[in-house]
Design a protein around this nucleic acid. Sequence first.
RNA 1: GGCCCCUUAGUCUAGUGGUCAGGACGCAUGGUUCUCAGCCAUGAAUCAGGGGUUCAACUCCCCUAGGGGCUACCA
Length: 536
Amino acid sequence: MIIRLYLKPVGRCRTMPNPENHIRVRFAPSPTGHLHVGGARTALYNYLYARKTGGKFILRIEDTDAKRSTAESYKGIIESMEWLGLNWDEGPLRGGDFGPYTQSRRRVLYNNEAQKLIDKGKAYYCFCTPERLETMRFEMEEKKLPPKYDGRCRGLSEVEVAERLSKGIPHVFRFKMPIEGSVFFRDIVRGEFSFENGNLDDFVLIKSDGRPTYNFAVVVDDAHMKISHIIRGDDHLSNTPRQVHLYRALGYNLPKFAHLPMILGSDHSRLSKRHGATSIAYYRNRHYLPEGLLNYLALLGWSLDGKKELFTRKALIDKFSLKKVSKNPAIFDNSKMEWINSEHLKEVSLAGKISLVQDVLDEEGLLPPEFDVDITKPVDLKIVPGREEMKEEKSHNYKMSDKEIERLATIIIVLGNRLKLLKNIPAIIGYFYTDDYKVDEEAVRMHLLRSEIPNRMNKLADEYEKLKYFDRKSAEKVLRDLAFDLKIAAGELIHPCRVALTGKIVSPDIFWVVVLLGKDKTVERLRKAAKLYSVI
RNA sequence: GGCCCCUUAGUCUAGUGGUCAGGACGCAUGGUUCUCAGCCAUGAAUCAGGGGUUCAACUCCCCUAGGGGCUACCA
């Protein structure tokens, strides 16, 4: 009894959520380009950590580089984040209690903080010209010395500073780095670090244009936004000691750090434009599924047990852990990404697929279809689950009729697992919607360019023309009977027929293709092929 | 040049002082089938190298090499 009374409060203290100590993480891109897979992965881990812990996920735009920041980049990043469903709790478009969330609008704060450091003697004015710094750096490199700022302005007296200020000489603020000693910090994924102060120099805090540098702005913002965990790319690891000094000098508590391994290009170098497909917008434009991309990205630097690899967003949130983040840089592998995408596509409901495929058809100009087809036995629309929501959910350019939706639903069912990548839709089913589809020459050579073929195609067309009930079963019977009469293997008709109808060597079940094309189109294309290739 | 980080098949990874080093993508082969996809089965392929420590090292320590980062009035 005594023990219980004694222990209870202790336990409660440990588990009670402390509002002052809540988890707050952030993703802080600079709008100097599109959101690429590396940035998206960082954003994802922050998002997952926040959702898992019930914390807040903040988006902050770091546009302190006036020359490189653009409004287009800003817009692109926001759009990509929204497409991925990486919803932020505070930030642009959403607001929050710690705004503004764009650094260019927080100038006053940085100046105040810098002034505080000047007042405390932890920073100083520097009037060195960029030219002087450049020649100094050049000379130090010549002498094979580490190129550090030489501290010329560090010892300027108040009078000297005032004098130069009154002359209007451009200046920056520099941090007064301790000459001796070292900094320590702990990283959740990498362990403990100790850096010699001697290797660090008096870096710039505020540039001569009055804007803060990255290292200064992040610290001020992270502190003011009460960020508890800094989850970011490992390219920032070497910046961390500088930032730790700033936290100390400014008198703020140190957040926890988690540095993520970088995502590299296939040549093991840092991701850049020349690596091609690196932007999220690229995958979006090609109709990849956000869930699939997220799943793949999650696996680049994190794994649950090395076995389970397919995760829904919910499962990721449930299973994610910073402790299981790996230290090794990862290379983006497109084929695995596509595989994961196809696995996710398999899980999409029929209604969902119809909507997705309709988007692609629409975008590729395949809607409305060039020809109408009445399917004798289409999929019963009543059995398309979730069809009601589907109709209202999206507004496509072209509204399909019920009949067209039925046909598309059937096409999708018939496609089955062949539908792996939405971007391939025009290539795999274009011939159902237009007569202007691509004809594979190799396929023609293999299956149509033989003297006996045209005659057979015409015969098949004749038989199909006679057919009253144009369903899959009858379509198959007609072809097989004809093959029997001609004393040839069914394949001898099937393959040329496939090429005649689709222009391709591969397609879904040929009898379904016949049905989905309808009697008129089937007969027309068979005859056309017969005519076209009879000259030989 | 200085400082820092990383190193398990082609790629992403699991893993322990004693394991047949596990999984996945990709690749190859066979089966099913009208082709393809799928599915099933099978296979090839890995602990960067060298020193230690230890009865024993992929695992711990050191060195080398390779890759990456920071060293900007870029972020």
